[in-house]
């Protein structure tokens, strides 16, 4: 499940026909660690478990290091950005005056007023902009590799600009109303809250699996090193002439019995 920071979720457990509130899980902190080359090193979520209104345990989990609490196990399984709740930092610039700069915080769907009677509204946002072969604009992933916003700008009632602006490519824009104007619009930064994907597992049968593994290991050991077999010997003494009769039987792995048997005979012969 996706867990946004500081909004606890409730975990219910079922008992026969009803559900009851068992635990409350709260995400205190989520962070991503990166390697120097930019690839992801680890995801870390600090989780707190609340039971009966008391904070019971706080632990920072990461991949390969889950949190265990009363048979529940909490795993770091994914992460992402809440793109439904985002803020776009943008900037208005003028070609005629390079010094001019007007910063603006935009929220999709909410028109914002700016000087010179301008109104900006973001109607679409994609975190990873791509144009498919059929010409459709979509997002390649849910990660902010190429964030782009579709903005509509009006000056009074006049359409000034309609098109895509890109956070990674400030000079590039994809506009439909290509009427040249003095203004140009930049997407400086995109902020969205991150969430942490936590997988919760409760599997009381796992202990039987571990017991099975131990039996499997023991069984293998016994089968190879302690196979059931019997070897008999009968020693007869006929007036000073000694006869030794040897016999052996094995229910399985007859090969090693033969090896052991021949070794035994060789040793007895060598004894003379």
């Amino acid at each position: 499940m996706a867990l946004p920071p500081s909004a606890p979720i409730l975990i219910f457990a079922s008992r026969k026909s009803y559900l009851y509130l068992r635990l409350i899980l709260r995400l205190d902190k989520f962070l991503i660690e990166y390697y120097p080359n930019g690839s992801i090193k680890d995801w870390k979520s600090t989780l707190t478990i609340i039971e009966n209104q008391k904070e019971k345990i706080t632990k920072t989990i990461e991949v390969n290091h889950p949190l265990s609490y009363q048979g529940f196990r909490f795993y770091q399984s994914s992460y992402g950005w809440d793109w439904k709740n985002l803020q776009l930092q943008s900037e208005i610039k003028k070609r005629s005056n390079p010094q001019y700069s007007h910063p603006l915080t935009l929220v999709p769907g909410q028109p914002q007023n700016a000087p010179d009677n301008l109104t900006l509204v973001v109607t679409h946002f994609v975190p990873d902009f791509i144009i498919t072969q059929s010409g459709q604009i979509t997002t390649r992933s849910l990660e902010p590799h190429n964030p782009a916003a579709f903005i509509q700008v009006k000056q009074g009632h006049k359409n000034l600009y309609t098109g895509w602006i890109f956070a990674r490519f400030a000079d590039f824009s994809l506009s439909q109303a290509a009427e040249p104007s003095d203004y140009h619009f930049l997407l400086k930064d995109v902020q969205a809250e991150m969430y942490s994907g936590i997988q919760i597992a409760k599997d009381p049968g796992t202990n039987f699996i571990w017991a099975g593994c131990i039996f499997l290991g023991l069984g293998l050991f016994l089968a190879f090193y302690w196979p059931p077999r019997e070897i008999w010997g009968l020693i007869e003494n006929h007036n000073g002439v000694v006869n030794i009769h040897l016999g052996g039987v094995a229910s399985k792995n007859k090969e090693t019995l033969i090896q052991e048997f021949t070794r035994l005979i060789r040793e007895i012969r060598g004894f003379k």
């Binding site: 390697y35 090193k41 680890d42 995801w43 990461e62 991949v63 390969n64």
Partner: peptide, 11 residues
């Protein structure tokens, strides 16, 4: 290449 998070374990 650096180790992805899932492989960072003595296992």
């Amino acid at each position: 290449t650096p180790l992805v998070p899932a492989l960072q374990s003595y296992w």
